[in-house]
């Protein structure tokens, strides 16, 4: 409370005529971007995320070989897989494909699954949250009870059931992961909107004669999005890990030609003793990517809400 005393009155030298100068004002988004740029962990997170996205997009250019090429299968013996060599910088995998190529194409797969499943969760949750937080009353009670029921189902169980119903289809896994996130996004957006609705500016908008729909959509909603955006970046990280988990449980894509980090981990199981490299490399990829999204998400949280920092 009292430290504010010092912070509220920054001693701006020579600020005779505020607001001084002709420069344009800084909106909250611009201000958040500035804070983000000054935060080292945001930079690190952003570098990892950008690198990951670039690798995923330019996989065909970066990868030394075609994906899922099993032309070196003859070199793989039941007891050993060839390690790094000049031709294969990271060695081969247990199917006789080039490890580096598989990892690069795996990034692509992880990105698609992460983005699509997060989008499913975000959109589904946003719609429910908007109905609950925007309409209020019985709508709110009804929607939130449904969300409570969804929340009470363990997310992995939900994902497994959806994948089981839809079969081993690449979309199943995305829908499964996304659906598990719907109640979380819904709660978050609703809570954030309810908090904003108590602000005086909503009352001011009503007193100005704005229509309820406009107040919700163009005043309450934009101010409530911050925590949702942060959550989305964090969910991207967990989605990538969950894909790995579901693949590990054998629910991933059925097509062995599609490289995917989670399945690479699974396949490495039986050779963990002799060739730990097979598990460690995709593991590192998953960890670093998740770390990148998490760092960036946390930094975004701080940037959007500078007060949360202390």
């Amino acid at each position: 409370m009292t430290i504010l005393d010092a912070e509220q009155g920054p001693i701006d030298e020579g600020l005779f005529d505020p607001p001084a100068g002709d420069e344009r004002g800084t909106s909250l988004w611009q201000g958040a971007f500035r804070r983000l740029r000054r935060n080292p962990s945001a930079i690190v997170g952003a570098v990892i995320v950008v690198a990951f996205v670039l690798v995923a997009i330019f996989a065909p250019v970066l990868a030394p070989y075609e994906p899922a090429g099993t032309q070196w299968i003859s070199q793989v013996t039941p007891s050993s897989v060839p390690g790094p060599s000049p031709g294969h910088l990271l060695g081969l995998d247990s199917f006789g494909s080039d490890m580096l190529t598989q990892l690069i194409y795996g990034a692509r797969q992880s990105l698609i699954i992460g983005v699509v499943s997060t989008t499913i969760g975000l959109l589904g949750g946003a719609v429910l949250g908007l109905i609950a937080g925007g309409l209020g009353g019985w709508w709110d009670t009804g929607v939130m009870r449904i969300v409570d029921i969804l929340l009470s189902i363990p997310s992995l169980l939900l994902a497994v059931s959806i994948a089981a119903v839809m079969g081993r289809n690449p979309f199943a896994i995305m829908i499964a992961i996304g659906a598990a996130q719907v109640p979380i996004f819904a709660r978050l957006l609703r809570g954030s909107m309810l908090g904003q609705r108590r602000q005086d500016y909503v009352l001011a908008a009503t007193s100005l004669g704005l229509r309820q729909r406009r107040i919700v959509m163009s005043h309450v909603l934009p101010n409530s999005l911050g925590p949702v955006i942060v959550q989305a970046t964090l969910v991207l990280a967990t989605a990538i890990i969950e894909v790995a988990a579901l693949s590990y449980l054998g629910l991933g894509s059925a097509d062995p030609a599609i490289a995917e980090w989670g399945r690479m981990l699974v396949k490495a199981q039986d050779r963990l003793q002799s060739d730990p490299r097979l598990a460690i490399l995709p593991g590192i990829c998953i960890a670093i990517t998740a770390l990148g999204f998490t760092l960036f998400g946390e930094a975004l949280r701080e940037a959007l809400d500078p007060k949360s920092r202390r």
Binding site: M1, T2, D5
Partner: peptide, 18 residues
């Protein structure tokens, strides 16, 4: 008024500055 330093002065006397 706010920013005059009055509260910081009192915290300093109490040894309660961060």
């Amino acid at each position: 008024e706010s920013g005059s330093g009055k509260s910081v002065t009192s915290l300093a006397v109490m040894g309660l500055l961060p």
